[in-house]
Amino acid sequence: MGINLLNAKTLAERLRSAFVVDNRWLLYFQGLGNTILMSLFAVCIGVVLGVLLAAVIYTTKKTGKLKIPAAICNVYITIIRGTPVVLQLFIMYFIVLVSVKNGIVVGAVTFGLNSAAYVAEVARAGLESVDEGQMEAGRSLGLSYSKTMFKIILPQAFRNIIPALFNEFIALVKETSVAGYVGILDLGKVPGLIQSRTFDYLFPLLFASLLYLVVVYLLTLVEKLIEKQLAKSDKNGGKKIITGGRKKCKNRS
């Protein structure tokens, strides 16, 4: 079959049907746009909520306050990390947010809530990597707990977790490719869509993969840029950089 296809069509024709016919190239970029849109919102939700979760858990550990909120945070993290993101997407799409017509919104919220659990663990490790003396120094100068947290602890924690955080962002971008399961036209969905009309997967798959690669590569460039900026302020600092997070993107819960 494959050989027949090769014989029947020249490479140029296959390219043409993958990109030019019916302006199909637009589909890739529409998909890419949706993927980026979902990822961006998801990252924002994930970081804000994740840092909040981490701050609550950290506060409980250090001061013994906020015990009940911390317990709730821990349950949340356990459930989110313990179930597949595809099922979470189904639950959101078909049950919780069934009244929301815009699939992109459902996707962004789902991936954001999912990412928050992972960001929370990364951020918690970051908070714990900051020397205890920093909190004491801040408090002894009369700064409140929250001021010390925002001005002194979090900035240092942030610099320590950049590699792990970007690991999470990268995983998240690729993870949004399951959005196609609920009919969202994201980049991961496009090759299948085109193949269903042309019966040819080759170029659609290659090109969609290339686009993901470009996005992820740009992300790593941003990471390097931020690290470079921060390195200026801390010549021999950053000893406690935390790497890790989730290494594999697919097949994780």
Binding site: G133, A137, G138, L141, I152, Q156
Partner: peptide
């Protein structure tokens, strides 16, 4: 009250992400 009680630590506990000037002026 803490503002009126200056504390100096064994391990300095300067804020590494801030310049010397910001360390002094922050609080």
């Amino acid at each position: 009250h803490r503002k009126k009680m200056g504390m100096v630590f064994q391990h300095f506990n300067l804020f590494p992400h801030l310049t010397v000037l910001k360390n002094i002026t922050l609080a």
